[in-house]
């Protein structure tokens, strides 16, 4: 069991998966954000030889999600690779696995600020993707939107409890916008209280923190 939570958003019924993805059953659409493949090797280039399995770990999560939902469309909300050279640094085994996924499922690659997709990777590459009223962007558009999915900020939230603080990546929502957490194994996060995220949710909203097999929901106040 996935422990996904149901969220009604822009009159659509969505499932929020604790792995950090959204499934839209009516369209059989899976959305993920900020995979940041090859962040490990990007760090290695700068002298920090981090364990080189981050792409593999992220692909593992993605594979589980594909198996779980069997989507017709997979929308990746940008920053699929950590940097421009990332695609070229993929290890052969990981590149083959990614290509196989892209061959088996219809991917829509929304381009983010770090994206230069591998040549030959199947799927549509678009700046933004629309389906009916809903729009999928890498970065939330400032101002009033209705039914926007976005990534980019890697939202996380900190909950003080019993003299300690538990911090987790989270979905951040209000009635108009839904921001996804980053799926990449090495991606950190930006607190939902950060001005850049607050600017996109001026009236506050609700954060769904990722747990091992369920989500935890907390209100986020307006400031």
């Amino acid at each position: 069991m996935s422990g996904a939570a149901v969220l009604h958003f822009a009159s659509e019924r969505l499932l929020l998966d604790p792995a950090g993805a959204i499934f839209w059953p009516a369209r059989r659409l899976l959305a993920v954000a900020d995979l940041h493949f090859e962040k490990g090797s990007a760090a290695a280039r700068q002298g920090a030889l981090l364990p080189p399995w981050d792409t593999r770990a992220t692909l593992d999560v993605l594979a589980t999600l594909l198996r779980r939902y069997g989507p017709e469309t997979v929308v990746a909300l940008g920053d699929t690779f950590h940097d421009d050279g990332g695609a070229a640094r993929l290890q052969r085994q990981d590149a083959a696995r990614l290509a196989a996924m892209a061959a088996d499922f219809d991917f829509v690659w929304v381009t983010g600020n770090h994206d230069k997709l591998p040549s030959g990777l199947r799927g549509a590459s678009v700046e933004e993707f629309r389906d009916g009223k809903l729009v999928f962007r890498h970065q939330g558009a400032p101002g009033r939107v209705v039914g926007e999915f976005c990534g980019h900020h890697h939202p996380k939230a900190a909950v003080p409890v019993r003299g300690t603080v538990v911090t987790r990546p989270c979905f951040m929502t209000d009635p108009r916008r839904l921001m996804l957490p980053a799926l990449g194994a090495y991606t950190g996060g930006l607190d939902v209280g950060h001005p850049e995220i607050r600017a996109l949710f001026p009236g506050g909203g609700r954060a769904f923190l990722l747990g091992k097999d369920r989500l935890f929901s907390f209100a986020v106040g307006r400031h």
Partner: peptide, 10 residues
């Protein structure tokens, strides 16, 4: 709290 399959509006 949020549970699986339980509808909730923000």
């Amino acid at each position: 709290p949020v549970r699986r399959g339980q509808a909730r509006k923000t």
